[in-house]
């Protein structure tokens, strides 16, 4: 499509403005993490790595980072198992209410976090579970399942049914077919879904606040500390860490997905 030079310029400016609007605040956080000045001021007074040292020495930060990682790994593993099973069930068997099940599996990602959080907190209290790592893992798993399920079912639908038939035709029973044909073709989809689940869990705060009890995940620690003026630069350092730990998995997942899509079947 041909566009006039003026229109093209306008389009570029708009795009630049939008990207600036989204990323400038994040850049600001990154810059302030290296700022010698304790209060955020522009321009930065000088360069320092002091805040990184402080953050590394804080046992509170180390504990919350460790909790966040444990919770994310736990939620991802639960999501991988349940998401894969759900995808197989919905894809393979036609049963009454199959579409409904599919919808119900996806729904948690759309439900308001605050509602999910209150509901789960109430449920945990009712059955008398101690709030802590376990409740965080279960709560996160409810929405992490979605990414695994979506990736797995998309792959199952794209994989030709005749591959499984070919396997059986060549003498493989149901179990051998699952192991040698179905599962390997699902592998990259599960990897991508798992990485997304990890990122989703790692930066979740609303549901987490309601089910974490006295524990602090990394986002909760940030939330509790960013208003304290003397903590500001350390908060920025932790935020930088949080960005890295959620962006890297998402980036890897999108790489894996596009590679898998690029390979002709």
């Amino acid at each position: 499509m041909e566009r006039s030079p003026a229109a093209r310029l306008l389009l570029r400016l708009t795009t630049a403005a939008i990207l600036l609007f989204i990323y400038l605040p994040i850049v600001l956080i990154v810059v302030y993490a290296f700022n010698t000045n304790r209060v955020p001021t522009w321009p930065p007074a000088g360069f320092t790595l002091e805040w990184f040292g402080r953050a590394a020495q804080s046992s509170e930060i180390r504990a919350s980072l460790s909790l966040s990682i444990q919770a994310a790994i736990g939620a991802t593993l639960v999501a991988l198992v349940l998401g894969t099973l759900a995808a197989f069930a919905v894809h393979r068997f036609s049963f009454f209410g199959r579409e409904t099940v599919s919808f119900l599996v996806i729904l948690p990602i759309a439900l308001p976090g605050i509602v999910t959080g209150i509901a789960l907190a109430t449920a945990f209290k009712t059955i008398g579970v101690q709030f802590g790592l376990l409740t965080i893992v279960v709560a996160h798993a409810t929405f992490c399942v979605v990414t695994v399920y979506n990736n797995a079912i998309a792959r199952l639908r794209r994989t030709s049914r005749s591959l499984e038939e070919a396997s059986m035709d060549l003498g493989a029973d149901t179990w051998q077919t699952l192991r040698h044909v179905t599962f390997p073709s699902l592998r990259t989809a599960l990897l991508a879904g798992g990485l997304l689940a990890f990122a989703l869990s790692f930066d979740e705060i609303i549901v987490t606040l309601l089910v974490a009890g006295p524990q602090q995940t990394l986002p909760i620690w940030i939330f509790n500390n960013y208003l304290r003026p003397n903590q500001a630069p350390v908060v920025n350092v932790v935020a930088l860490l949080a960005i890295a730990l959620s962006v890297i998995p998402v980036y890897l997942a999108s790489r894996i997905s596009s590679e898998a899509a690029g390979v002709p079947r």
Binding site: S162, S167, D169, L170, A172, V181, S185, V263, R265
Partner: peptide, 29 residues
Amino acid sequence: PPFDRDVNTVFQDYALFPHMNVSENVGYG
């Protein structure tokens, strides 16, 4: 079931296993 029949099929879309090489495909049975 198909895996207990002494019959093999050449599928219209070939149905080669994409994650295996040619030898692995041929040796699968």
